[in-house]
């Protein structure tokens, strides 16, 4: 059933595919960092007692988690240039380019998911720890950064990494705005050379190997973490 397929096309397209992969990995990494940072802020806001903080944060998270990622990508891709035009008053402003739109979209989207993971992680730290910190005279900020967050993050690392693997898979969706990530590159080669079967199967294989090894690695780490703590 595989006769008549030209698997050489994969070898010839190597440099182009590799570029796409770097794009995917770069977007993943940057969005992860941005998402975790923003997600932590959102988590702290949701956990606070001040309505002015927890209501906006909660609304943001619920909104972003109700929307498809493609729709979020469209929002930022089509509307960031318009927003910039309005803000700068310059009707011909170029905007910031599709890569940065995508980066903002992914960061904002993932932040909502990271927020929930981090919130659960913070809540899993026993209340006694917070009380002990306050009893010593630490401020809220010190208690958070020195006592609660370090413990929370240790518990959360496997889940945060797993979310990162999901994010890596999600970056393939930049296809809808024509950006060339790994899947985009494979797709372009497929259409240019008419080799859909070979390229798409190859893309699936690469994603599988990446994600499977990454999740295997996370599982091994989970075992080691739980033993030591």
């Amino acid at each position: 059933m595989f006769s008549g397929f030209d698997f050489d096309v994969i070898a010839r397209a190597q440099p182009y595919l590799w570029q796409g992969m770097l794009f995917s990995l770069g977007l993943t990494l940057l969005s992860m960092l941005g998402g975790i940072f923003l997600g932590t802020l959102l988590a702290l806001m949701r956990l606070s007692d001040h309505k002015a903080l927890n209501i906006p944060a909660g609304s943001y998270v619920n909104l972003l988690r109700s929307m498809p990622l493609i729709l979020v990508i469209f929002w930022f891709y089509f509307l960031v240039p318009i927003a910039i035009k309005k803000l700068t008053g310059d009707a011909y402003a170029q905007g910031i380019g599709p890569f940065y739109s995508a980066l903002i979209a992914f960061t904002m989207f993932e932040a909502a998911y990271y927020c929930e993971i981090i919130r659960a992680g913070i809540q899993s730290v026993p209340r006694g720890q917070v009380h002990a910190a306050y009893a010593l005279g630490l401020t809220y900020g010190q208690a958070m950064t020195r006592v609660v967050l370090p413990q929370a993050f240790r518990n959360m690392v496997p889940i945060l990494l797993t979310q990162g693997i999901i994010l890596f898979q999600d970056t393939s969706l930049v296809y809808v705005v024509g950006l060339t990530d790994f899947m985009g590159a494979a797709s372009k080669v497929a259409q240019r050379d008419g080799r859909l079967v070979e390229m798409y199967m190859f893309a699936a294989l690469i994603y599988f190997l990446f994600c499977f090894s990454a999740s295997y690695f996370v599982r091994r780490m989970q075992v080691r973490y739980s033993v030591s703590s």
Binding site: D170, M183, L196, F208
Partner: peptide, 25 residues
């Protein structure tokens, strides 16, 4: 489970739509 979990949904869509008709009898 491992196969379907570790390949992005977009890639799976393309395989169903573009690849499957080419590799079945």
């Amino acid at each position: 489970v491992e196969i379907f979990r570790n390949v992005p949904l977009l890639v799976q869509m393309f395989i169903w739509y573009f690849v499957l008709p080419e590799i079945v009898p």
